[in-house]
Amino acid sequence: MAKPASTDTDISPDIAALSFEDALGELEKIVGDLERGKVKLDDAIAAYTRGAQLKRHCEMKLAAAKAKVEKIVVRPDGSVSAEESELN
């Protein structure tokens, strides 16, 4: 297995593709499993690693939240584009 060991800071692609809600839900499930002590030790290490990545993914999703307001412009040919707007 030449796959490099993932660290907390490397977010695996499948996690990066998760929605915030799914990531948060999975994180809470992992935490719940760990808290109940129902996880095998080997699995716990993987679960912890994944949990840490999920947490980081969630944080990044929230940190990346930035207001951006665009206005839709419909051209005469019916095509649509968006342009920056100062509505607020």
């Binding site: 929230l62 939240a65 930035k66 207001a67 951006k68 307001v69 665009e70 206005k71 839709i72 968006a82 707007s85 509505l87």
Partner: peptide, 8 residues
């Protein structure tokens, strides 16, 4: 929670 908003 700031979002990307498209106003039509």
């Amino acid at each position: 929670l700031p979002r990307h908003v498209l106003v039509w």
